[in-house]
């Protein structure tokens, strides 16, 4: 029983880590690398300051 609970907990841990990673990468991609012109203009100064290769 304990083992089952422990492994269920480990699975939610892995899910949580995967979720945070995917969300984090998504935000960075949207802000830093999206070629959509609206995103580029909004994020322009941020991209320069964070040294993302921008244009």
């Amino acid at each position: 029983m304990t083992k089952v609970i422990a492994s269920a907990r480990a699975n939610t841990d892995v899910l949580g880590i995967a979720f945070a990673t995917v969300l984090g990468l998504g935000l960075i991609f949207a802000a830093g690398f999206s070629h959509a012109s609206g995103m580029h203009d909004m994020a322009h100064d941020t991209r320069h300051a964070v040294s993302f290769p921008c244009h």
Binding site: T21, L23, H44, D45, T46, A49
Partner: peptide, 20 residues
């Protein structure tokens, strides 16, 4: 304001990867 918003988005992305 755009810069503030996008800087928060960028650093939130960094932060989520860091806590992962």
């Amino acid at each position: 304001l755009n810069t503030v918003a996008m800087t928060i988005v960028t650093y939130t992305g960094f932060a989520l990867l860091m806590v992962a």
